[in-house]
Design a binder for these strands. Structure first.
Length: 762
DNA sequence: GAGCACTGC
């Protein structure tokens, strides 16, 4: 039984290798005490060992006592090797974690119930310990299955896997591994796999019952990412089809009963966390200018509070950089007056290069003179410090109560970022950041009554704030036929679903009955938005799949052009070197080709720096391109180019663009600067960053940006004939409202018909 | 004449 997984494993070559080595017993450190220290990977995998070591364990009938005895060694029950000293010293600390108090209780509920909701506050140890508790009772190795534990973020999946591998005294990637986009660190011997929630969702698309797993743990479920929400809906159905599958939903306290209710009143187990108390202060009256109030508060803390670092939450890059400058200036004044010690200010936001992000972990500055006023650091951060990054040593948190949040307006099909009040849950999370190392203080720049009466309980889950086109495509691929009755924890507005279905229908991914088409099935194989996926899948028809492949990759990574405030002119000049008069898409492609040239590859980092391009983004694009290319090859989509000398080289690319983005087209109004989007009839302006000459009558755009004005960004000129030709369903003139756009298209139709007729006469 | 919160496949 125990060796069965070798034959089930995807990686047949390594499975074979394991088998051969198993034949040679003397190489197995478990059976040869003189080789127990031997750490060569080739000698370690032997799944049958675990069955031997845990032979007295009856699946789903074990006790905490049994597990503890097995953990106490001296032999590693999963590898058969002697446990290291490091292992025992960690084991000692692990047993101190709050979750260990309730191991027996956990096992009982886990064994009794198919679904379990587990609530553990920060510091409870749930993410590292619960999967191990499961391992000793679920014994996935006996059935050639795995235990999966999902995380919303890649870094978390990687770092937790690393930690748990150390705790179990195994090599990372062997019994404990992780799986994230671009990196699968697992092997045939893996029995515990940490992975991103998106990754598990991808797997589910090819294996609707997730048969590789015997237990699935959804961690950080309270974050309610799109992937977690869909997985919950899916797993709710899968558990009915697979009575052998167990499911654990892990969450921070807040919303636990909601999860419980959603899963037919599944049992709930709560474990306290281990944090220090945080004292909360409110302002007596509402603040008019939250940035100004925040700066004042930071300086006051610095001048009057005892030692300890400060974390200030603001909403975006510009606001943060500005605040950092001001805090620095004011601190100089305080120091001159000898009213405060030194203060180092660090900005923190997602688009900051990793090296700069790392700086926040440097220690606070020492007093200016021995015995002088204490120095401290102040971190001014976006929401990234709320969940993704934890900084030890923070004692003071300043929370103005705002963050930028994505909102989706299905009426005009536009996602945009809006500065909005945070939720109570967010406010609590922010305050908690002050109590990680010792008791702290949190200064909320709003009144207590505003907190109680105005803040919503929870931030709306992503599923209620997003365009659901790709989600609907995924659900179809997951085998969900009846979307309207698919049981999501928070069902989105019917209009959002209708919009998504409509969009997919126009893209020919769904037929008129709402069934997945061949194109839709192909498109769903790509980790891309449907429009991009359709553009890529159809690009061979336009003889430019190589180029569209590059472009697709470029469009799915962050901005490649860098434009530092101090050197805008030079940056713009450099961009002009790559500019293509027909538009930004072609310009980006020129950049990519230049980046891949031998000249640039000699020293790509320097080359990017010299040309004001983001090396990180271009490298990422390269990575994405490779992944997409592999999928294209697997799906037998041909990779080809129109010869560069051919007149149609760029025209073919522009036509292929239309095949995916025909719903994102705008027409210039008269000879002016304003454009109107087709069908939705929004008035928009070309984003000032465009290289496109103002005289293009019809353009496709990649995104709609709602800021001070309505902009369309990344635009390329197209011909109206192509629209009618390539997307006849969408450009069925009968469906257009009366107006300038319809008239213009009507004229094009007439012209095309006349040409056609002339051709016929000749 | 501009400003991308944060993730993820």
């Amino acid at each position: 039984m125990a060796t069965k997984r070798e034959f089930d494993a995807d990686d047949t070559s390594s499975a074979k290798r394991v088998k051969m080595e198993n034949g040679n017993g003397s190489l197995d450190p478990a059976s040869n005490p003189y080789l127990a220290h031997w750490n060569e990977p080739m000698a370690k995998k032997d799944p049958s060992n675990s069955a031997d070591r845990l032979h007295s364990f009856k699946r789903h009938a074990t006790t905490a006592k049994q597990a503890k005895a097995a953990e106490d060694g001296p032999i590693n029950p999963f590898t058969g090797k002697t446990l290291s000293n490091n292992y025992f010293s960690i084991l000692h600390k692990r047993r101190d974690l709050p979750v260990h108090q309730q191991r027996e209780e956990f096992l009982k509920l886990y064994q009794e119930s198919q679904i379990l909701v587990f609530v553990g506050e920060t510091g409870s140890g749930k993410t590292t310990q619960i999967p191990q508790f499961v391992l000793f009772d679920d014994l996935p190795q006996l059935n050639a299955k795995m235990v999966a534990c999902t995380q919303p973020r890649r870094v978390a999946a990687m770092s937790v896997a690393q930690r748990v591998a150390e705790e179990l005294d195994v090599e990372l990637g062997a019994e404990v591994g992780y799986s994230i986009r671009f990196e699968d660190k697992t092997s045939p011997s893996t029995i515990l796999k940490y992975m991103t929630d998106g990754m598990l969702l991808r797997e589910a698309m090819h294996d609707n019952n997730l048969t590789r797993y015997s237990t699935i743990i959804l961690d950080e479920a309270h974050e309610r990412t799109l992937a977690t929400d869909i997985l919950m809906g899916l797993l709710k159905e899968v558990v009915l089809r697979r009575p052998d599958l167990k499911l654990i939903i892990m969450s921070a306290t807040l919303d636990a009963t909601k999860f419980q209710k959603y899963f037919h009143n599944a049992p709930l187990l709560a474990v306290p966390g281990r944090t220090h108390p945080v004292e909360i202060f409110y302002t007596p009256a509402p603040e008019r200018d939250y940035v100004e109030a925040a700066l004042r508060t930071v300086l006051q803390i610095h001048a009057t509070e005892e030692e300890g670092d400060i974390l200030l939450f603001l909403t975006g890059e510009e606001e943060i950089e500005d605040a950092c400058r001001k805090i620095n200036l004011e601190t100089q004044d305080l120091i001159r007056e000898d009213a405060a010690g030194p203060l180092t200010v660090y900005p923190l936001y997602g688009t900051l290069p990793p090296a700069q992000q790392q700086k926040i972990f440097s220690p606070a500055p020492p007093p200016l003179k021995p015995g002088g006023r204490p120095g401290r650091k102040c971190i001014v951060s976006t929401n990234i410090a709320e969940t993704s990054l934890t900084i030890d040593g923070i004692v003071y948190v300043v929370d103005p109560g705002f963050s930028k949040q994505k909102v989706y307006n299905p009426r005009i099909r536009v996602e945009s970022l809006l500065v909005s009040p945070i939720s109570k849950a967010s406010a609590q999370q922010r305050a908690g950041r002050a109590g990680r190392t010792r008791p702290g203080k949190c200064f909320r720049l709003y009144t207590e009554s505003a907190f109680k009466k105005e803040l919503i309980e929870q931030t709306y889950p992503e599923v209620l704030r997003s365009n659901l086109a790709s989600t609907v495509l995924e659900l179809k691929k997951l085998g969900i036929d009846d979307l309207v009755h698919f049981d999501l924890m928070d069902p989105p507005a019917p209009e959002t679903l209708m919009r998504a279905l409509e969009e997919l229908n126009y893209l020919a991914c769904l037929d008129d009955e709402g069934e997945l088409t061949t194109l839709g099935r192909l498109a769903s194989e790509f980790p891309l938005d449907p429009a991009l996926a359709v553009m890529l899948v159809t690009s061979p028809e336009f003889y430019c799949s190589n180029e569209i492949l590059s472009l697709t990759a470029l469009l799915s990574v962050p901005q490649i052009f860098v434009r530092p405030a101090s050197n805008r002119k030079r940056a713009d000049e450099m961009k002009d070197l790559f500019a293509h008069p027909d538009g930004d898409h072609l310009t980006m492609l020129n950049v990519y080709h230049a980046f891949k040239s031998d000249d640039a590859q000699a020293n790509p980092k320097q080359w990017c720096h010299d040309h004001f391009l983001s090396y990180r983004a271009l490298q990422q694009a390269d990575n994405v391109r490779l992944q997409l290319k592999r999928i294209m090859e697997r799906e037998e989509l041909e990779l080809m180019s129109t010869p560069f000398e051919n007149k149609k080289y760029y025209e073919n690319i522009r036509r292929a663009l239309v095949a995916g983005f025909f719903m994102q087209v705008a027409k210039r109004e008269g000879n002016g600067k304003t454009y109107t989007t087709v069908k939705d009839e929004q008035n928009v302006l070309l984003h000032p960053s465009t290289v496109l000459a103002q005289d293009s009558e019809w353009v496709v755009y990649n995104e709609f940006v709602l800021t001070t004005k309505n902009y369309i960004r990344t635009v390329t000129a197209v011909k109206p004939e192509w629209l009618l030709d390539i997307a006849p369903n969408y450009y069925d003139l009968a469906t257009f409202k009366k107006g300038e756009i319809k008239q213009a298209l009507q004229r094009v139709v007439t012209k095309m018909e006349r040409k056609e007729a002339e051709k016929g006469r000749r």
